[in-house]
Design a binder for these strands. Sequence first.
DNA 1: TGAGGCTTTGTTAACGCTAACAATCGACCA
DNA 2: TGGTCGATTGTTAGCGTTAACAAAGCCTCA
Lengths: 343, 343
Amino acid sequence: MLTDGAPRALALSDVALHAGVSHQTVSRVVNGHPNVAPATRERVQRAIAELGYRPNAAARALVTGSTRSFGLVISHINQYGPAQTLLGLEKAARAAGYSLRVAILDDDSEAAMREAVDRFVAQSVDAVVALSTYGQAVDALRRFDAPVPLIAVQVGRDESRPTVWVAQEVGAEVATRHLLELGHRTVHHVTGPPDSLESHGRVIGWRRALEDAGAPVPEPLHGDWWASSGHAAGRALAARVRAGQEDVTAVFVANDQMALGLLSALADEGLSVPGDISVVGFDDVPECGYFSPPLTTVRQDFAELGRRGVELVLARLRGEPLESQPVLPQLIVRRSTGPARPV
Amino acid sequence: MLTDGAPRALALSDVALHAGVSHQTVSRVVNGHPNVAPATRERVQRAIAELGYRPNAAARALVTGSTRSFGLVISHINQYGPAQTLLGLEKAARAAGYSLRVAILDDDSEAAMREAVDRFVAQSVDAVVALSTYGQAVDALRRFDAPVPLIAVQVGRDESRPTVWVAQEVGAEVATRHLLELGHRTVHHVTGPPDSLESHGRVIGWRRALEDAGAPVPEPLHGDWWASSGHAAGRALAARVRAGQEDVTAVFVANDQMALGLLSALADEGLSVPGDISVVGFDDVPECGYFSPPLTTVRQDFAELGRRGVELVLARLRGEPLESQPVLPQLIVRRSTGPARPV
DNA sequence: TGAGGCTTTGTTAACGCTAACAATCGACCA
DNA sequence: TGGTCGATTGTTAGCGTTAACAAAGCCTCA
């Protein structure tokens, strides 16, 4: 162990001395430059191995202006989607020889986003990947003039900036159509928070599917992604049913957590799923096959999102203009949806 | 926007020129050194603001040997606990003026751990926080001689290295005792993966509580943290019940996801919770109040774990020896547990 | 056999910052 | 009034690396 009086770490010059060459030759070997005689290269490599030399990243960064790292700005990491995306991103980044630094936004304000990007810029990251889909932070992103490539993940098509996103509308349409095809007269909807772009996209898809089918468009209920809000929405729907105001037989909930809360509320209210009401979620979290009943939902491939984000960054760094491309979600039918009861 | 022919970023000397002082004076202002005349300080600060100067982190790191950043080695980020801990860690680190770099382990091998720590060392991070509780990676950690402080989070008491951890045994004991106090003759257990230290700790606590109460210790069932394995365990238990081999009335499941799977399996098998069988989980994920029925569980404060991890790192960097301290888990009683049926 | 060109190696100068030291300026006291 | 000390500011060097250029050695071909 390098104890308290730790000798300073090895430098190129130490290796050079050991191998009997100049430090520049060592540098060339380390960076795989051509025009190093095979014998010399081997000697240097042996010296590197013997001494256990590792290049100093700070010095490299200073002279090259590149740290071979990306900054990831993220919020809501404690939710399944973002965490999974982070996983895909880190792996892809590492495979490409980049490391990842993360900044978690305290809130979705423009100031927080700006501050995070700024810190990354000062750290000379090669690119910033922003994975935030909320309110002002997104707007900030749109307007940002950063001196590094700035890639947005999961922000929906953005004309001004390279983007990777899941086609939320398509997923919502598929979910809604699935319910309509089961014979439901219409489909109710529990949204995510109002400042979330994903939530917005799902509302659009849901509405479009209803309109295309000529079905009535009921007033949506609003949630915040968490199970508790889904529970509240479930109680509200049950109340509507009991009051005889509306015939609620199908609900499309904007994510699986809220769907779980909704299922729980419906069970409390004595309504059976899918007997009385069919429910579709969104995300396909790993647990949702074990809800009561197992949840029909729309799968998003979050890890793929991360991978494509890195692809986009790399293309951008190479100067190739790459198309923004949506990841397509997929309907997973389980047992929470069934045919409408005959009237 | 800094366009393609981007002018190089501002340096100290630019600010110095603008303010009419030497670059060193600017450096002093930036670093809050004393002995700068108030008037000068203000002039420099104005210049900094006007030009929008931000110090170059790489140059600083090169000369100081410190990047003011921590490396976080983590695995299983896609699960609730690790993600939540990351959240607490990043926030606390940022508050202390440090930024976070993450490496996600591909597997829990020693090689993966070593590789990750090595990369961080080359990047001159000021400390490495390891958040991994699995198999060989933990052993690797124990043996590691890194030239930077290495702090382990959630690895249980470790004599050789500063550590923050949740007292798993205590949580498991509390959960088990809760069931025994409800009159259950014994408590069955579904474990996590065999190479997880958390899982191991929970087995110990469970067994101790049973032995202390003089209750029989049944053979535990084994899971892997995921809901599917809990489902399998649930079916296995139901089979035992049906075969009349055992009187299963209470189960302590090592995490909430598996408990969800178990609940689902029991429901499929026509067993009621808590009527026939009482179930306790572990973690208190945000959803578990909405399981069917709402799950009694043991809450771990993951974010607190992250915060304490940073505290420990900071103390270590200041040279203060800080005690390893456990975070205490807490029983949350919901509706999945009830009194044993009278025989 | 010598000029030209390639390959290989070395030398020097940055990159932007902080630390150590040097210099300047007042103020204060004997 | 001159010397001393503290406060303030400037100057220089060096962190470990890469890039640009220079030099040396060898081969090839006229």
